[in-house]
Design a binder for these strands. Structure first.
Length: 580
RNA sequence: GGCCCGGUAGCUCAGUGGAUUAGAGCACCAGUCUUCGGAACUGGGUGUCGGGGGUUCGAAUCCCUCCCGGGUCGCCA
């Protein structure tokens, strides 16, 4: 897709090329810093060196030689020392941007670069029979944002929740339930009870080896398809999926598939055999299957000496299944940093087996969350924070602010706003920065309602909507079509121009977010847009504009801003209230 | 010890080669205060861009080296 700023850049490049003074390969344009009064710059250093000139000389010569076409988006070209600066024509820009937003609406900012390509995203991936906690929030939220962004870029996106639904801990779960009874009820309460039983069983098993044997026996029975074991296991899976869905609904998460680890169980012997056949693995004296790729990566196992399988075995099977089932051009794993080595080994092994040659395999890694004392969060330490509790707390805090700021809203709307704003603040906290850093838990920052936060952006959206509501209520007649076409020319105030330029940047931000696997690029755009709106709001009254035409022009700008903000927030999985 | 991340303002973070002022938020101080909704706006910064070398006309950004924090290195996931 081609947006206004794309055309602007093309025109700039074409104008430079048309002088015949600079070879194509040396034309590199960059966005100047905000304090420079230009919209695109050509730094002439490299080109000048090649041509044997000094940079200011070349810039000056080019400025003389370039004459933008009359209908171009390029308004002016000036040499500033070694730089050749190009400025946008604000009137043509505003006409183009308003048209694009109005025409595309909720699709403004989308692209077709991914047409015909599929990307598989592995995210969230909580464990069955456990409550979701803050440790899952990062993968879930970042993964969903990437899902939304890639879909907006035109890709066919497949989201897969790689559930931890297999392994020997289920032997203990089942043994505990058989011994003490199935927890009543459903949802998170039942999950919490299972968790307690599990912890109790684990404690007692340390003292009494018989309990350990019992758990192992159930684990084996489960693998062999014993009806009782199978039934209890299925019950736990269903219970978990139902309980998690409530969290997902609150977070705006929609995952296409729930293939858990158990799904791949039947494929594991084939994977091990194939690795052996292809000589990327060998069986050692103890009977374990060892992968040695002969490069700098540490060796690892595909099969234990007791013939059991491992995480790696299942992940190889999973990857091969995804290649075969979805034919993706990319597979993204949104998984924590500690598994960095695991994925490097996995990708290297799969490639050594001759698969995924043209497929991009990416581990989107994120840092660990620590508590205030620098300790990792864990149930055992007793410092765990559960996702539902975190969201509830965020809701409560936002509710208190709504109560104070908008006491006249109906109670139901207050609740709805508190949910949108509270949950949004938690999500935004995880999306506004590069995910690689470790996070030290700070409750106040996580639930921040001001500054660079979701509520700030949502508030600016609500202000736009408020203006538009008032305008509609005042029933001002719309300008005639002929006049409407001339309106963009009226938007020449610096605050108006700054806002329009910011709106024009959304498509580029979305592309960059996809290319870098970085939702924070979109978050940053949202924040900058909200700030640009603030400046406009301060300097340019809409409803009290000097003339009806200017008022109409500004209304179009406000409507376009609201739409673009909604699109940006939507990519992050955030909603925006009409009032708050 | 090997490998992987990170180190930018008191705190949390953007910026990853170019324009004699390295940007935001939080916190703090002072203003806006009959407002198109104050969850807002304006002003206020003596920052060794972890240290030291190097490449370059130019380095937070690229290369080397060292320091600090976190992670990880075959029978858990």
């Amino acid at each position: 897709m081609e947006y206004a700023l794309d055309r602007f850049e093309q025109q700039v490049r074409a104008a430079i090329a048309a002088t015949g003074q600079v070879p194509d390969g040396l034309i590199e344009v960059t966005a100047p810093k905000p304090n420079i009064p230009a919209d695109l710059a050509f730094p002439t250093f490299k080109a000048a060196k090649q041509l044997g000139m000094n940079p200011p000389q070349l810039a000056g010569a080019l400025a003389q030689a370039i004459h933008p076409a009359a209908d171009s988006l390029v308004a002016s070209v000036v040499a500033a020392g070694p730089f050749l600066n190009f400025a946008l024509d604000p009137v043509r820009l505003s006409a183009a941007v308003l048209e694009e937003v109005e025409e595309l609406g909720p699709r403004y900012g989308s692209d077709d670069q991914g047409a015909g390509k599929t990307v598989v995203i592995d995210y969230s991936s909580p464990n069955v029979a456990k409550l979701m906690h803050v440790g899952h929030i990062r993968s879930t939220i970042i993964g969903q944002a990437l899902y939304n962004i890639f879909r907006f870029l035109g890709y066919n996106v497949v989201g897969d929740n790689h559930l931890g639904d297999w392994g020997k801990q289920f032997g203990m779960n089942i043994a505990a339930i058989v011994r003490w009874g199935k927890p009543a009820g459903d949802g998170e309460d039942a999950l919490a009870q299972i968790d307690k039983l599990y912890a109790q069983y684990a404690r007692m098993a340390k003292e009494d080896p018989a309990l350990d044997d019992e758990a192992r026996a159930w684990s084996l029975k489960l693998e062999q398809g014993d009806p009782t074991a199978r039934e209890l296991w299925q019950w736990m899976v269903d219970l978990t999926l139902t309980a998690n869905q409530h969290n997902y609904d609150r977070l705006g998460v929609h995952i296409d598939h729930n293939y858990g680890e158990s799904f791949y169980e039947p494929m594991l012997p084939g994977v091990i055999q194939e690795a052996l056949d292809k000589k990327v693995a060998y069986r050692d004296e103890g009977g374990a299957v060892v992968v040695d790729l002969g490069n700098s990566l540490p060796t690892f196992l595909l099969q234990r000496s007791d013939s059991g399988t491992l995480y790696h075995t299942r992940d190889v099977a999973t990857l091969l299944f995804r290649l075969n089932e979805f034919h993706p051009s990319q597979i993204l794993y949104v998984v924590g940093m500690p598994q960095e080595l695991h994925f490097r080994q996995l990708f290297a092994l799969v490639r050594a087996m001759g698969y995924a040659e043209d497929v991009e395999l990416e581990h989107i890694k994120f840092g660990t969350i620590f508590d205030q004392h620098g300790q990792p969060l864990s149930t055992r330490r007793g410092n765990m924070i559960y996702l539902a509790d975190l969201l509830n707390d965020a809701h409560q805090r936002a509710r208190a602010v709504v109560e104070q700021a908008s006491p006249d809203l109906p109670a139901a709307e207050k609740d709805a706003v508190a949910e949108i704003v509270g949950v949004g603040s938690v999500m935004y906290n995880d999306l506004y920065q590069d995910p690689r850093r470790n996070i030290t838990l700070d409750w106040d920052r996580m639930l921040a309602l001001e500054g660079n936060s979701a509520p700030y952006i949502q508030y600016m959206y609500a202000r736009c909507r408020s203006i538009l509501r008032k305008a509609a209520a005042e029933d001002i007649e719309l300008p005639a079509a002929a006049l409407n076409a001339q309106l963009p020319a009226l938007l020449t105030h610096p605050a108006e121009v700054a806002l329009l330029k910011q709106l024009a940047r959304l498509p580029g931000a979305v592309r960059e977010a996809g290319a870098r696997y970085a939702p924070f690029v979109v978050a940053d755009w949202c924040y900058e847009t909200a700030r640009a709106l603030s400046g406009f709001y301060r300097d340019c009254s809409v409803l009290k504009a000097e003339t009806p035409a200017l008022r109409a022009a500004r209304l179009r700008l406000v409507a376009a801003t609201a739409q673009a903000l909604l699109n940006g927030l939507g990519l992050l999985g955030l909603r925006a209230p009409e009032r708050m």
